[in-house]
Structure formats: structure tokens, C-alpha cells
């Protein structure tokens, strides 16, 4: 039997990922860039009017971009501190039996479909917000950000917990042996040592929030406006794509503009992903030294 053949076949199949990545970039560029033939890049990115079905269409994505960034920022603000608290709890404080229950539960929570969260935002959170704060609609930036926070807590908390666990046991021992309390050990030894991992975990959570669709599609209100308060509705890039692509003629300027929105999303998430990879590498190098 020829020993070379299976290796070649395996390598060929492995290249499928490469092919998918190349096709993904190719199609987004091919379908997204034509938008620039009809609208200047300046207007596309900095324009404040998104009326894609008017004649002629106004395709300014600034409100969509601001929408994406505001939901992401607010949800990160809610979720990251809580996630890190939970990770510290799981790694440093919780008794073993609590760990054994809570860790799988947290992981399971990560599988919660985003449509379910979006649905809860519509039927539970929105009416409550509307009544409590006397609003016209409870579907807004705050609603979507709270749910998005719930969406990324399992991701950030699990990864953060892993980076706490990666801190060598010996460092904790050394700190305790010097008479430090548990909190002092966490704050002064474990936390600084885990910091690169925590940064990377937070970035991956932020990346997930930027790209998440269903939660914002259902709970963010959908108005293509730049929000001035947390009770304003927003229309992030992802929800614009999901809501409008179905009703857009293939090849129209609007169609190309939505692909361009996809390109913006891809660029932002890839950028964050690369930064987090770089931080992880730096963190590992620090341990090697």
C-alpha cells in the first residue's frame, strides 16, 4: 500500500478551511465593493441617513455602525465585570461541589440560542422596561445590551476562568505563606498574572457581541438613528443585514451596501480576533521568560 496517498488526501481535505476563508473574503469583496461605484466610501461610512428603499436610496451607515458599537460597548460594560467576578469565584473561592455544578451550567448557558434571548427581550424585558421607565417602546439599546451581556457572560467567564486556572498553584502558595489573605492573593498575584488571558477573553466576548444578530434584531428596536440615550432604539449592522437582505433585489445598490456592511463587520471581528491572538502569544511568552 502506498503510504503517501492518505497524507495527501488528508492535506487536501484540510485545505477546505483555507478555501472557505478565501471564498468568504472573495464573495464579500465582490458583492460589497460595487456599492462604492454608486456611493462614495465617505458617504457610506460617515453618512447619517439610512433610507435604503427611497428613490434614490440614502446609504449612510454611520447610524448602523454607531448602533453596533453602542450595543457592544454597553453589553461589555455590563458583562465583563460580572464575568470576571464569576470566574474569580469559580477558580479561587467556590468549594469543589459548587465548581462541579456551576462550571457545566455556565458552559451549557453558552449554548443558549440567541433567538431565545431575543424572544425574551421582546416579550418579557421590553414590556417591563416600558412600564418601569414610562417609555414609548421597551425595545431599545438598553434591552439589547442586557441580553447581549447575558449572551457573552458564559464565553468571557469560561475563558477568564481558564486563565485564572493557568496561574501556577505555587504562586498562590507563596503568597499565602507570606501571610496574605485570599483576597490579597487574588488581587495582587493571581489577577496580574492572569491579565493577558482576561484581556483576550474580554476581546473575544466583544467580538461575539459585535457579530451577534438575533438579539439585536429582535430587541434593539431597529431604528437607524444615532442613540442619545440608553432608551433609544438602535439598528446595528447585523440586524440591518438580517432584516433587509431578504427583501432586496440581488445586484441592487442596496444589496451591495448590505454586503459592504458585512465587510465592515468582518473587518472589525477579524481585527479583534487578531489582537486577542497577539495578546495570548505575548502572555505565553511572559510565562516562558
Amino acid at each position: 500500500m502506498n503510504e503517501k496517498t492518505p497524507g495527501a488526501v488528508i492535506t487536501a481535505i484540510a485545505s477546505v478551511s483555507l478555501v472557505i476563508m478565501v471564498f468568504l473574503l472573495y464573495f464579500l469583496l465582490q458583492e460589497g465593493l460595487p456599492a462604492l461605484r454608486e456611493v462614495s466610501i465617505r458617504e457610506l461610512i460617515l453618512g447619517f441617513d439610512w433610507y435604503p428603499t427611497e428613490e434614490p436610496p440614502a446609504l449612510g451607515m454611520a447610524p448602523l455602525i454607531v448602533g453596533s458599537l453602542s450595543v457592544t460597548a454597553l453589553s461589555a460594560l455590563i458583562a465583563i465585570p460580572l464575568s470576571i467576578a464569576i470566574a474569580v469565584f469559580l477558580s479561587e473561592v467556590a468549594p469543589t461541589w459548587v465548581q462541579e455544578v456551576l462550571k457545566p451550567a455556565l458552559e451549557l448557558l453558552g449554548f443558549l440560542p440567541s433567538i431565545v434571548l431575543g424572544f425574551l427581550g421582546m416579550v418579557v424585558l421590553a414590556p417591563w422596561l416600558q412600564e418601569s421607565f414610562d417609555l414609548l417602546s421597551g425595545l431599545n439599546l438598553l434591552n439589547a445590551s442586557v441580553l447581549m451581556g447575558a449572551m457573552i457572560i458564559p464565553i468571557v467567564a469560561s475563558l477568564a476562568e481558564e486563565s485564572f486556572q493557568a496561574v501556577p498553584r505555587e504562586l498562590r502558595d507563596a503568597s499565602f505563606a507570606l501571610g496574605a489573605t485570599r483576597w490579597e492573593t487574588i488581587r495582587k498575584v493571581v489577577f496580574p498574572a492572569a491579565l493577558p488571558g482576561l484581556l483576550s477573553a474580554s476581546l473575544l466576548g466583544i467580538m461575539r457581541a459585535l457579530g451577534e444578530t438575533m438579539v439585536v434584531l429582535m430587541a434593539a428596536g431597529g431604528a437607524a438613528l444615532v442613540p442619545v440615550s440608553i432608551f433609544d432604539p438602535v439598528r446595528p449592522l447585523t440586524s440591518a443585514i438580517a432584516a433587509e437582505m431578504g427583501e432586496t433585489p440581488v445586484g441592487s445598490t442596496h444589496y451591495h451596501a448590505l454586503f459592504f456592511a458585512g465587510l465592515i463587520l468582518l473587518a472589525m471581528t477579524l481585527g479583534i480576533n487578531l489582537i486577542s491572538m497577539w495578546i495570548e502569544k505575548k502572555g505565553k511568552e511572559r510565562w516562558m521568560a
Binding site: A14, S15, S17, L18, I20, M21, F23, L24, F27, L28, Q30, E31, L204, M207, L210, G211, E212, T213, T238, I241, A242, M245, L258, F259, G262, L265, L266, T269, L270, I272, N273, L274, M277
Partner: peptide
């Protein structure tokens, strides 16, 4: 190296972008 980079990047691509990719391909 390229393949590893691709796998890691694909894991981070937003699901709606996969939708656009599926639509066009």
C-alpha cells in the same frame, strides 16, 4: 500557519456573515 490562522478566524466570523457567504456561494 495559514491554515491555523484561517481556522481561528473562521471561528470568529459573525453568523450573519456566514449567511452572506452562503447566499453568494
Amino acid at each position: 500557519t495559514m491554515l491555523r490562522l484561517c481556522v481561528r478566524c473562521l471561528a470568529g466570523v459573525p453568523s450573519v456573515v456566514y449567511g452572506l457567504f452562503g447566499l453568494s456561494l
